[in-house]
Amino acid sequence: MLELRLVQGSLLKKVLEAIKELVTDANFDCSATGFSLQAMDSSHVALVALLLRSEGFEHYRCDRNLSMGMNLNNVSKMLRCAGNDDIITLKADDGSDTVTFMFESPNQDKIADFEMKLMDIDSEHLGIPEAEYHAIVKMPSAEFARICKDLSSIGDTVVISVTKEGVKFSTRGDIGNANIVCRQNTTVDKPEEATIIEMQEPVSLTFALRYMNSFTKATPLSNTVTISLSSELPVVVEYKVADMGYIRFYLAPKIED
């Protein structure tokens, strides 16, 4: 028996919108720790890891570990039927091949349930080791989204370079090239507007902008984004999901042929 009640149902709606472009089908795993997902895009160069900790739910019942295969486009269709203020409850019985999404309006005058078929998904689970990153940049998520969008009108790849001067996003294409430098800036009115750069050593890596733009679909989840870079490792682009968890996107760097 599985029963997860999330008062801030809009978080789940936003999570789905953040990952459905990158991943088509995925297993959602439920355990005592929480509700999680790990999935790769079809070409296996990007990976998304989601964790919503059990403490973040108003009610969390998971009698035994459960893996539920879902088509994310179909989940998104279901969740789009929930109002932004609705309380969302996920329910599944042991051995069932369906999951039920229950939507309650804030004043309890409307209750809907949507049952969705589960699917068998054969997915490989990668062990992601804890890594020391050469540079960690925390910046406003809207600023990062704007940079990725702007640069993708010029080129296909972005070089992200972190030095003691700041973080530089560069691209080049047929019509020309572009460089955007963001300097560390902690003298702002609100902490979420700050750009904070922690650098152990300079790092410069190249990534496909198509994927970066896809990651920025998570922007509505958090005012800030954290970008962790290390040479020879995938970049980690992390958005916090309120105080209950995170979405982490991993992207392999472009390498020399």
Binding site: L126, P129, A252, K254
Partner: peptide, 14 residues
């Protein structure tokens, strides 16, 4: 700079 490695190159399968 052309190809990207797949995730399996970086992270072990468990």
């Amino acid at each position: 700079l052309k190809t990207q490695s797949r995730m399996e190159r970086f992270f072990r399968c468990s």
